[in-house]
């Protein structure tokens, strides 16, 4: 049976290829996956995990970290105090149906359902614990009645010698849809469920899971969205004025895009203008 029995163009990417692609993306766009305060970004040895990157990243002065604000100490405002921290996505692997690369946690109802993919990510993070800073800390005096007129005192971020790092394994189940982005049909991942392993109590786990689900949803929709033409390496047919390309409908193709046989597949039908 041929690949194009029911279509004109066919493209498939195997999960092994996708996992290599993920590594390339993480190495060439580290600031999409590594977040830290300025201080940590300036002192890379403080990061919980070395940031893998290509030589081009530094040659072209791309950042390794997306710089974010320190974590504020709630209630402290004389002066406000924030703590250095970092969060890093250090590993990502994809498993297309049928699942065979990693085992999903029970909460995600393994095995992986048809037409779905699973993703395992390892997230490491750490925050400063500024105990020595508190020993010499003197609050800034404030005058009663002047609270509304004084300039806000600049936030104090205690210098950091190390972060208290930890790593979490998170799993998610997703499927792939097609959206028109900038006029082009594009593949977009849609997250169905997320589970971060080993977090208790349930309420905290639910919050973390929700946070991560939202994060991945937005990341996939905002950044990791790929035109279908990319899967076809911009085959010149798709840019010809005489040719109209569209995803092959059901029937004859029941799932398009389709996740099966450890691959992500798309099927395209061409209409040639007379």
């Amino acid at each position: 049976m041929g690949y194009t029995d029911n279509c004109d163009l066919y493209a498939a990417v195997h999960e092994d290829g996708i996992n290599l692609v993920a590594q390339h993306v993480m190495r060439q766009r580290p600031s999409w996956f590594n977040f830290a305060t300025q201080y940590v970004s300036d002192h890379l040895d403080l990061a919980c995990s070395p940031v893998a990157h290509t030589i081009d990243v530094t040659d072209y002065k791309n950042p390794l970290f997306k710089v974010v604000s320190p974590v504020p100490i709630l209630g402290a405002d004389s002066p406000p105090v924030g703590l250095n921290f970092c969060v890093q996505l250090v590993k990502a692997e994809v498993d297309f149906y049928p699942g065979n690369i990693f085992t999903l946690p029970a909460v995600l109802n393994p095995p992986l359902p048809q037409q779905h993919l699973a993703m395992h990510v390892q997230i490491c993070g750490g925050m400063d614990c500024p105990s020595e800073f508190l020993n010499g800390f003197l609050p800034t005096p404030t005058s009663p009645g002047e609270a509304t007129n004084v300039q806000p005192t600049q936030e104090v971020v205690p210098p950091t010698r190390r972060l208290l790092c930890f790593c979490l394994d998170a799993y998610l189940v997703a499927h792939v849809g097609v959206q028109i982005v900038s006029g082009k049909p594009s593949l977009v991942g849609i997250v169905d469920s997320v589970d971060v392993v080993g977090i208790k109590p349930k309420g905290l786990s639910d919050n973390v899971n929700c946070y991560l689900k939202t994060t991945f949803e937005l990341l996939l929709k905002e950044k990791l969205i790929f035109p279908i033409s990319t899967m076809l390496f911009d085959i010149p047919l798709l840019s010809l004025a005489t040719i109209t390309a569209q995803l092959t409908p059901n029937p004859p193709i029941p799932n398009n895009p389709s996740i099966d046989d450890n691959q992500l597949k798309i099927f395209i039908t061409l209409t040639v203008a007379p």
Binding site: Y3, A11, V13, H14, L20, F233, I235, L237, Q263
Partner: peptide, 8 residues
Amino acid sequence: SHITIAAS
């Protein structure tokens, strides 16, 4: 193969 592309 990681990538397969077919043209009818």
